[in-house]
Design a protein around this nucleic acid. Structure first.
Lengths: 212, 212
DNA sequence: GGTTTCGGTGGACAGTCGTACACTGAAAGT
DNA sequence: ACTTTCAGTGTACGACTGTCCACCGAAACC
């Protein structure tokens, strides 16, 4: 049986392969503790390269962190694309959105963990990048909400405020799910709470009237 | 002029004084980066003691972290005591609660920063301690809400879910305020958003009916 | 007043840290 | 075929890490 892909790896491919290994190693190591607490040498050892070889790929651990932020949010974007797909006015929009969130938390567990940690404790540049990305999510959500029936009388400001509240609640839900990893009954409870919260917020929204 | 308090400091007092200095130094050092990323020697240097003297007060940096959690939440408890004081059914309950929160974030800035960071990125024991304390807050808030008019028909479960949502939003508000330190106009905007969010949630609550 | 307690000292240790430097060898470019 | 590029190597450095140990001196105790 012939190997399907054994052409002897071009140089750029080898480099990309090592770069991936570094990203994975950093993600793995920062799983316990923080990016700010892991050393270049630990990463290099885990990858199987000599410490100085690290610099062929990143200027510093901080730069590595920014690359991980990009990667993590790229996968998050596929998530909201999944949520957007389908009838936006569907009645079960709450259940479906939270379902997608839960699925992605499991599928991209390490990315969510990384963002949750570094959002609060990462290097300043990393924190700022994450904050910016979350703000983008809020803006997109506000635009989506504006297309929903019943929000005609809402001010832009109130749409943003509501989006911020929803995103905050969803981030907290993701963090809770991660913190009970491996205890499915507790997770079920958290998911059910998230559904109820989202419904409460939407009930509040439907009865809300923006100030003029 | 006679010095008011210069009796030559008893031993226990000296020890307590050093202990405080260690806690303050740790709080100060973890301001940039994390508890997990600071070293025993850094703390000792900042306090002005020799590294090994640290062990006279704490077994490890983690133990220090737990002490800081206790301290930070002790000051938070004075905050909710302030909020509770006064007519619980007052119409401006939202404005007053958020006002107290904002005041305390400024007064206890370092404690809030510490909790925000270590909640997500601290040593496991520290994370667990913080999570537990926040859960206690949720329980207390649920009890307070139960005494409010209009919640008679609410199930205990829904009260807890609502409390969780409110606490989550308030934690996020505190974090936002901390992240814009020194820019009063942005802070004003965040505070105004928090007020609106809390009102939205309460509108949702007043129109909510628990399932039987 | 003699003894005990104990917060703090100072030196030494085996590791780990980031980074500088000169290098190798194979792929890429010509 | 000859040269250049460059991911990865190996050594070496001074600085910093947690912790062990014997020691001090003044407050606390009896």
């Amino acid at each position: 049986m012939p190997e399907p892909s054994e052409p002897p790896l071009r140089r750029v491919e080898r480099k990309e392969r090592t770069r991936r290994a570094i990203l994975d190693a950093a993600l793995d190591l920062s799983d316990e503790s923080t990016l700010a607490a892991i050393s270049l040498r630990q990463v290099a050892k885990q990858v199987g390269i000599v410490p100085t070889a690290f610099y062929r790929h990143f200027d510093s651990i901080d730069a590595l962190g920014l690359a991980l932020v990009d990667e993590a949010f790229a996968s998050l974007r596929t998530m909201i694309r999944d949520i957007r797909r389908g009838d936006p006015a569907l009645a079960d929009i709450v259940d479906r959105s939270i379902g997608v969130l839960v699925d992605h938390v499991h599928l991209q567990r390490e990315h969510f963990l990384f963002i949750a940690r570094e959002r609060a404790a990462g290097p300043p540049g990393v924190r700022e990048a994450i904050r910016h990305q979350i703000e983008l999510f809020e803006r997109e959500l506000a635009a989506d909400l504006a297309r929903l029936p019943g929000t005609d009388a809402w001010s832009d400001e109130d749409l943003r405020v509501l989006s911020n509240l929803i995103v905050t609640a969803m981030v907290a839900t993701a963090e809770s799910i991660l913190s009970v990893a491996g205890r499915p009954d507790e997770e079920k409870q958290i998911v059910e709470q998230a559904r109820t919260q989202l419904r409460m917020v939407l009930v509040g929204a439907l009865n809300w009237r923006s100030k003029p």
